[in-house]
Design a binder for these strands. Structure first.
Length: 581
RNA sequence: GCGCCCGUAGCUCAGUUGGAUAGAGCACCCGCCUUCUAAGCGGAUGGUCGCUGGUUCGAAUCCAGCCGGGCGCGCCA
């Protein structure tokens, strides 16, 4: 049980004793340390319901409150109940944390299976900065969910069956340079895609040829299928190299093509069950969720009164769309993998699509906690959306390489003793970490303008700041000559910096479940920044190795615990910690 | 036209779901390396939380209406 839960449980008992019935009495970390460590605003709300004096109620509750072994409580303002935790209680808590492999994090996801759908690039196109959000946020959520006890299945739902294959097939047959393909497959595929794309705009006949190639592919033409298979294969290899570098992995790579066979049956089932109907020769799933008024120019008013924007699952020409594939995918994940939850880490512009899918799934009888974990857009310098198609986007690899290069430069300047492979390895950890942290430390819905300096900053609120706190601790332990038994060390907290560090360490288990309440890794990132700040202050204020016993052992134990929470926390963001930097 | 998201310090952003005197980083200014890694620490400056009303003990947060920006809305994914 976390400290916060312990306080809530004791406070609930006191409220029940005062009011004669059980009530909810939430506790939160205090907004300001001057008020204490934790606070509850419950007395004010409950007094209002009962039309009694909030301060009087708070006094009544505090009188019945048993905080033995934890600290004290007092009342402030209109009826805040403020908790002050004693240094001894923090010490006991921190000590218990050190002995716990979970570091005080409860397994709130135990027994639940979640499928996380993220990254999902199109094959035959390189990943650019626009893909970074889904990949990094999704990976982090997967790590966190696993740590909280969920059975996590990650699935890279790649776009391996889009209409872009018409152009690629045509380009492959007329423009392909085998040597270039061997050297850099994705670059070569991009080149032919771009050239054909340009040609279609100049000459409509080329577009017709491409469409013809696509139709042949979809009809099962052997030659085209063979080309398609090779395209997908080389693309996956190229993608895998980036994922390796990002330390991101997937349990499955079931792309759109995997579901092709199921689509016709799915549409028939929807028609048969009355969940979809034909409209202008297309098969549509309507939902009543978004009603449009009379003067809506986009309104579609059918004879039976359905008035919303439908999800089309079969085109007038008989082709299927991504709504169809998404429904088939959702069914597969439930039936084959036993998914209780599916999280889609996809940009906010697709919100309507997911509403339609989830609504259709519900009426189809597919139950589960389906969540569209939306994120904001990355904008270009002109504040306009970075378009995938324009192609002149900053590539994801370029960003990573620039990040590692900048980190290497800083290492050479700050710590010249580090050389060779070790320096290279550290530059990799620091550079990639900086990119990931820049992404994960802000609210996922925030739009931002892509900026090298923002994404690759190495000072201030960044991954290196956190990694450096870890490195400082490791350095202390390297200088320690004698063996040190952490489990035997007693904690004595007297300096404010020590107490504050312990206060934050103990909160790790309170923050992590919060992250998954709204799927927001930035809550963890912000917590870790606060923790690292507390450590750096402690480090400046409290000598460790030079301190006399028993303070020395106590501080060593505190450092050890801090390093474990920091590296675990960063690990959950997909960021590694170097031993030195 | 309808729907969704956003507007917080010069800049980039947090703000634990309605709490107390709104916080960080960058930039700028003043201090701190003969002590465990200065990618650091301590301090100073910086605010009409887009505007106007409403709800209540209490609003950056909830509601309504404006202003400004972004995105989405039948056969692309």
């Amino acid at each position: 049980m976390t400290l916060l839960q312990e306080l809530e449980s004791r406070l609930a008992a006191a409220f029940e004793a005062a009011l004669g019935e059980p009530v909810a009495a939430p506790v939160v970390p205090a907004t300001d340390l001057r008020f204490g460590d934790y606070q509850s605003n419950a007395a004010m709300g409950l007094a209002k319901q009962r039309r009694t004096n909030p301060r009087a109620l708070a006094e009544q509750v505090v009188a019945k409150l048993d905080l033995s072994g934890l600290g004290t409580a007092d009342i402030a303002g209109p009826g805040f109940i403020n908790f002050r935790i004693s240094p001894e209680a923090f010490a006991v808590r921190a000590k218990a944390l050190a002995a716990d492999p979970q570091l005080g994090v409860p397994k709130t996801g135990e027994g639940r299976t979640v499928v996380i759908d993220f990254s999902a690039p199109n094959v035959a196109k390189p990943m650019h900065v626009g893909h970074i959000r889904s990949t990094i946020i999704g990976d982090s959520l997967a790590r966190i969910a696993r740590f909280l006890g969920f059975k996590v299945i990650t699935d890279n739902h790649i776009g391996d069956w889009g209409t872009q294959f018409g152009m690629i097939l045509h380009g492959w047959k007329t423009l392909l340079d085998e040597q270039a393909l061997a050297a850099d497959p994705i670059a070569e595929l991009l080149r032919i895609y771009r050239e054909v794309n340009a040609a279609t705009k100049a000459d409509p006949a080329v577009l017709e040829t491409c469409k013809g190639e696509l139709v042949k592919l979809q009809a099962g033409d052997e030659e085209n299928l063979a080309i398609w298979r090779r395209c997908v294969e080389v693309s996956k290899e190229g993608l895998q190299r980036i994922y390796d570098r990002l330390d991101v992995s997937f349990d499955h790579w079931l792309g759109e093509s995997f579901y092709n066979d199921r689509l016709p049956g799915l549409v028939e089932e929807f028609l048969g069950k009355g969940l979809a109907r034909v409209s202008d020769d297309a098969v549509c799933v309507f939902s009543d969720e978004t009603k449009a008024p009379e003067n809506d120019p986009f309104k579609v008013c059918r004879e039976d009164g359905w008035t919303d924007n439908p999800a089309i699952i079969r085109k007038a020409d008989g082709g299927f769309l991504y709504a169809t594939t998404d429904l088939a995918t959702l069914e597969y994940r439930i039936d084959q993998w036993g998914a209780d939850e599916i999280w889609y880490v996809v940009g906010v512009p697709q919100q309507l699509h997911f509403r339609q899918i989830f609504d259709a799934a519900a009426r189809w009888g597919k139950t589960g906690n389906f969540r569209h974990i939306a994120f904001g857009s990355i904008l270009g310098e002109d504040r306009k959306l970075m378009k995938t198609r324009s192609g002149d986007n900053v590539g994801l690899i370029e960003v990573l390489e620039e990040a590692v290069e900048r980190a290497a430069k800083v290492i050479a300047e700050k710590n010249p003793e580090l050389v060779g492979d070790e320096a290279k390895e550290i530059a990799e950890i620091v550079g990639i970490g900086a990119v990931k942290f820049a992404e994960l430390s802000q609210h996922r819905l925030t739009d931002y303008v892509f900026s090298w300096d923002r994404m690759l900053a190495l000072q201030g609120d960044t991954a290196p700041y956190l990694q450096n706190s870890f490195v400082r601790i490791r350095s202390i332990f390297r200088k320690l000559d004698e063996p040190f038994d952490v489990s035997a060390a007693e904690l004595h907290l007297s300096e404010e910096a020590e107490i504050h560090l312990a206060r934050l360490l103990v909160r790790f288990g309170e923050v992590l479940p919060l992250v998954l309440e709204d799927h927001r890794p930035n809550l963890l990132a912000n917590y870790l920044l606060e923790l690292a700040r507390a450590f750096h202050s402690f480090y400046e204020a409290c000598p460790v190795l030079k301190a006399d016993e028993p303070v020395r052992s106590s501080r060593l134990a505190l450092c050890d615990l801090a390093s474990r929470v920091l590296s675990q926390g960063l690990g959950l963001l997909g960021i590694r910690c170097p031993e030195r930097m």
